[in-house]
Each structure stands twice: as structure tokens, then as C-alpha cells.
């Protein structure tokens, strides 16, 4: 299977503060890859570097065999991105933000279908500002799906969603995965990671602690669930 995302020896610091240290990872086509770590671990910075939004000191990044900074236009026809805590133009309506994003791509998905899948179709004429937090979050995932991406980046995909909405999002993503979508996500919810991810990488303060499949990760730890295993890898004391 060919690699969709390849990161080699990525280093990034802000001034003297090292945010990403010697990160290596590869994501194969059709794989769901989770980047895990506590707040401030460097997850969003890593995503920004992979997407070419931030420059880095050294290392190399390739997505679909392309350099994101040099081949931005071709690459982002095929890559969907949901950035953490996205917000929208004041006064904009759901239908308008979809129309605007769809206009940017050569062969966009039918956003009416997507709105129906995410149960947002009856909000077409509603101002985005009036949606609930969870609905806004679903909308931001929906917008990332408009390019009909081969690779999808989701930064904290279900933060703020209720249980039911989370399940809806999982269903849509699992269906897309079966069609061959490659997914790169960050999440703080280990149940979600267990359901969705094939492989995960745990980082803390920019350093990679471990990269493995979910079952292997649990097996390496003395625990039976990913959440405990995760905390064990983080060398946290669990008070029971």
C-alpha cells in the first residue's frame, strides 16, 4: 500500500521552545491515523506543519506525494481540512458557507446530500451563528468533506458534540473509510480513537512516545482499555 502522508524528522520550535521534536510518521492509503497527546503537546502545530501552514526548521513532509507548500493548489483539490475551533463570517448562513466553500473546488460534493447526512439540511437558511456548538462542529466536518477528499484532516473532530451527534459523525467517517478515505485526526476521546483509528501516535511536549496499532498499544501496557494504556504511556499516576 502506498503512503499518503509521510513526515520525516520534523522539527519545529517557537523561539527557544521546541514544539515538535524529530517527528516521524507515515499514514498509508485508506488508514485512519490518530495523533494523540495532552493539550499543548504539539498536535495542532504538527498538523499545521504537515499542511504547509507553518514553516519548520528541518525535516520533510509529503502528502499524496506532494510538497504542501509548493504544490498547494493541486494538493488541496484532493485534501479536506477541518481546523481546530473554526469560525465563520458574521451573518453568514449555513447554505452560503457551503456554497462559498464548494465554489473553491473543481469537483465538489453535493452539499445538500452532506447536509442531509449530517441532519443539518433544515438549517440551510439559518445563520451559522445561531447553530448550537455541536451543530457548528458538525458543519466544520461537513465543509472539510466538500472537496470529496482522498485525505481528510480533522483536528479535535468531536469536541463539543453530544453522544448522538458523535455517533452520527463516526458513522459518516466509517462509511467514507470503507470507500478508501485516508483520515488523520486528533482527539481527546479514547473511545472515539478505539472506534475509528487503525494506528495512533502519542506525543507529549513534542516528543513521540509511541506509534502503533490500537490493539498492540493496549497489549504493550498492563491495561485492557486504550484510555488507561494512554495514561500509562503518558507516565501518569492514576488515583483509583
Amino acid at each position: 500500500m502506498k503512503n499518503c502522508i509521510e513526515v520525516k524528522n520534523l522539527n519545529k520550535s517557537y523561539g527557544n521552545r521546541v514544539v515538535v521534536k524529530n517527528l516521524n510518521l507515515t499514514v498509508k492509503k485508506g488508514e485512519v491515523f490518530g495523533l494523540l497527546g495532552p493539550n499543548g503537546a504539539g498536535k495542532s502545530t504538527t498538523i499545521d506543519c504537515i499542511l504547509g501552514l507553518k514553516l519548520f526548521e528541518n525535516g520533510s513532509v509529503q502528502v499524496l506525494g506532494m510538497d504542501p507548500t509548493k504544490e498547494r493548489k493541486q494538493l488541496f483539490e484532493r485534501v479536506g481540512v477541518q481546523l481546530q475551533s473554526s469560525s465563520y463570517q458574521g451573518n453568514i448562513r449555513v447554505g452560503e458557507v457551503c456554497e462559498e466553500i464548494a465554489a473553491l473546488y473543481q469537483s465538489p460534493a453535493d452539499y445538500y446530500d452532506l447536509l442531509a447526512q449530517f441532519k443539518l439540511d433544515h438549517y440551510l437558511k439559518q445563520p451559522v451563528a445561531k447553530l448550537s456548538g455541536g451543530e457548528k462542529q458538525k458543519l466544520s466536518i461537513l465543509l472539510a468533506l466538500i472537496p470529496q477528499p482522498e485525505v481528510l484532516f480533522l483536528d479535535e473532530l468531536t469536541t463539543g458534540l453530544d453522544t448522538e451527534a458523535r455517533r452520527e459523525v463516526w458513522q459518516v467517517l466509517t462509511a467514507l473509510k470503507e470507500k478508501g478515505l485516508t483520515l488523520f485526526l486528533t482527539s481527546h476521546y479514547m473511545d472515539e480513537v478505539e472506534v475509528l483509528c487503525d494506528r495512533v501516535c502519542i506525543i507529549n511536549r513534542g516528543e513521540t512516545l509511541v506509534t502503533d496499532t490500537v490493539p498492540e498499544l493496549i497489549r504493550k501496557s498492563p491495561y485492557k482499555r486504550l484510555e488507561e494504556a494512554y495514561l500509562w504511556f503518558m507516565k501518569e499516576e492514576i488515583a483509583i
Binding site: 499542511l51 504547509g52 501552514l53 498547494r72 493548489k73 493541486q74 488541496f76 483539490e77 485534501v79 481540512v81 481546523l83 475551533s85 473554526s86 469560525s87 465563520y88 463570517q89 458574521g90 466553500i101 473553491l104 473546488y105 473543481q106 472537496p147 484532516f153
Partner: peptide, 17 residues
Amino acid sequence: ADYRDKKILKHFFVTPV
């Protein structure tokens, strides 16, 4: 300033436009 604050400009970097 508003679009920059809301990361709308940033989001356009991860589109073909």
C-alpha cells in the same frame, strides 16, 4: 482583521484558492 481573527483567511490556505 475580523477574518484573520476568525481564522477564515488561514482556512483559505488549505483550499485550492
